[in-house]
């Protein structure tokens, strides 16, 4: 028997064909489930922290991580959805803040709490709608539009409250459903977060609208040429993003019963960080709600894990910065790889 140099069975006897098959299977799986990367990293991170710090392996610790993740995670879902369609919203922290005030004031004024909650969500969606309309109609970058909105709504909160805290004084039964504790220490906000993520993931992956969102972010002109209502998609996503920030803000009010002007400060960056770490491309066209969920948990695990490892809590921000940068580099590498593959198949 002769051995050909081009034969998949190599001269040193190793089965190159088998290895190639395995690599192909892995590539296919990663392409089909892009969240596998962040999920594996998260599992590894939890394992490292669990082995390194005995106290980390407690129900209290895990539920604590999920509670923080849910708070940022609900906002990250909206930010991620909008980013997939190619736009940014950095006003979510201020919308989160103003939602606490809307909810408290309306409930204190006598509106029944579920209705006050509903109206709060509508008002927040209107804020997003205005941001979206300005962005698409006046062709102003969403970064600038939402920067202005961020300053406007935080400023309005301070003007309306004169800097004082506003307390919720109405019926508290509904609030328990919003942010109470159901399973052990598990906050209901975690359940809302997971439910919202499932709904949005289904919309993104299984509906025509989800296709439009991905197409709008991937190549707006090509999407427009294919009949996708690009502007409408973007405006709807702005509204959705603000609505979810309002939802998270109302949940915060339900738990702490006060609205104060420092709330939600810096939340926009944490939410965007979670979405990007979860695999959402900054330029749009790629990302998922599952990724955004995993990204939020990842950030929360880092914060808690560092405390359990005995590191100063001041190190959290630089570490998160490094992780964000790595996530962007990996995402950029991924998109360049996809582009290369596309060009090859085109040739």
């Amino acid at each position: 028997m002769t051995i050909n140099a081009t034969d998949p069975v190599s001269v040193d006897g190793t089965d190159r064909r088998g290895r190639d098959d395995f690599r192909r299977r892995v590539n296919r799986m990663v392409r089909r489930i892009p969240e596998l990367g962040i999920f594996s990293t998260l599992v590894l991170l939890v394992a490292v922290f669990s082995i390194g710090a005995a106290n980390f392996r407690t129900v209290d610790s895990y539920t604590s991580i999920l509670t923080v993740a849910a708070n940022v995670g609900i906002v990250a879902l909206g930010c991620g959805f909008l980013m997939i369609s190619g736009e940014f919203d950095i006003s979510v922290g201020s919308v989160y803040l103003i939602a606490t005030l809307f909810f408290a004031q309306m409930a204190n004024a006598g509106l029944i709490p579920p209705l006050a909650f509903l109206v709060t969500l509508i008002l927040c969606a209107v804020i997003g709608l205005v941001n979206g309309l300005i962005t698409v109609n006046l062709r102003i970058p969403s970064f600038i539009v939402t920067l202005a909105a961020m300053m406007f709504y935080r400023g309005m909160h301070i003007i309306l409250t004169r800097g004082f805290s506003v307390s919720y004084k109405a019926d508290k039964e509904f609030l328990e459903m919003m942010a109470g504790i159901t399973f052990s220490l598990m906050r209901n906000t975690v359940i809302w977060w997971i439910l919202l993520a499932i709904i949005l993931q289904v919309v993104l992956a299984k509906t025509r609208y989800g296709n439009w969102v991905l197409a709008t972010g991937g190549d707006a002109q090509a999407a427009r040429n294919s009949g996708v209502p690009v502007s409408r998609v973007k405006v709807i996503n702005f509204a959705l993003c603000s609505l979810l920030a309002g939802f998270a803000g109302a949940a915060n009010m339900a738990r702490f019963l006060t609205s104060q002007s420092q709330l939600g400060m810096g939340m926009e960056f944490e939410a965007i960080t979670a979405a990007v770490i979860g695999g959402t491309l900054l330029m749009g066209g790629k990302g998922s709600m599952v990724g955004a969920v995993l990204g939020a948990i990842f950030v929360s695990v880092i914060r808690s894990g560092l405390i359990f490892f005995g590191y100063s809590s001041y190190i959290y921000m630089p570490v998160t910065g490094i992780i964000l940068m790595l996530a962007v580099i990996i995402n950029r590498g991924f998109s360049n790889f996809r582009l290369l593959q596309f060009q090859r198949s085109d040739a």
Partner: peptide, 16 residues
């Protein structure tokens, strides 16, 4: 300054 994050930082610190 965010109450949710502050509470969980305190909780993690106390568990650790």
């Amino acid at each position: 300054v965010d109450p949710v994050q502050m509470q969980e930082i305190v909780r993690a610190h106390l568990i650790a």
